[in-house]
Design a protein around this nucleic acid. Structure first.
Lengths: 146, 146
DNA sequence: AACCTTACTGATAATAATTATCATTATCAT
DNA sequence: ATGATAATGATAATTATTATCAGTAAGGTT
């Protein structure tokens, strides 16, 4: 993610806090910066460990509280990896999916596709289910690592 | 899942244990039966709770040990739900996906599709990633619940 | 710019989930 | 039936997450 994108995301998140009646506090900003800056998904514990390098780092409880708030606002999402399930990254909006390198962990957002939507509609017809949500994540080796 | 399928799966799993040098013990069989029998994904703790209804139920440690073994053998897989990430079900082989009812939890296996494979190949070309694995799970409301 | 309300914080206790330890037991090849 | 040993149960240790509460800081108001 380039610098302007990065700053823009942070501004967007700060605005979202404001508009929802949350205060923009130092601990929250520290967690937000770590998340927005990272190119790989992070666990709550990893975020906490990274924060320890900062001046007056947040307590572990505030890390969890901030993540819960960001999740309520839909600003982050969980990554579900074969190796573990509590890594977190900025939420992917709309019809997009995550592509994650199993070697270096780098993540990349890719566009969804009409073919996938079509597949889901077909499954709905076949099964009678109303599909409300889908989880599609791709794992592989990125160009750097191969 | 019909009764013959159920028995067949248990026989298959027992054979797999044998062929990989694992002993077919009572605690393992108890966990295997609970998993094969269930129509919904179960957490380790739920499996343990269910086992308490049996004669001489396995210890919690054996439940975890059995799940680790079954996972190593590729016989089970984890379900990644928005609400939590440690539910377990028998592994889906080949190009199939899981469809899970967010109301009653019932799961159903659906066939994959050439369109999905095509989408993944397109992403590979666009990004230079070699996609080795993908996670596609659909969540919705089943016919019974709607 | 100082004040005031109260949402938020850090420290830590409590809870829950998972893993490690080890003496005893049960599996299964012989 | 026997013996080697993989596996077990009980429980301690570890790790992750959530709850509690007195003190603090954000930010609207004056």
């Amino acid at each position: 993610m380039t610098a302007p994108d990065y700053d823009q995301r942070i501004e967007h998140w700060k605005t979202a806090l404001h508009q929802n009646g949350y205060r923009v506090t130092q601990p929250r900003l520290q967690v937000i910066r770590i998340l927005a800056e990272s190119e790989i998904p992070l666990t709550p514990q990893e975020i906490y460990q990274l924060s320890l390098g900062l001046d007056s780092p947040p307590g572990i409880a505030s890390v969890y509280r901030t993540l819960e708030m960001l999740d309520d606002l839909g600003l982050i999402q969980q990554i579900h990896q074969p190796s573990g399930c509590h890594a977190i990254c900025p939420a992917v909006e709309g019809h997009k999916h995550l592509l994650i390198c199993t070697s270096c962990g780098q993540m990349r957002v890719v566009e969804g596709n009409e073919a996938v939507s079509e597949y889901i509609r077909m499954i709905e017809e076949q099964t009678g289910y109303q599909v409300e949500e889908h989880l599609l994540q791709l794992f592989g080796i990125c160009q750097n690592c191969s």
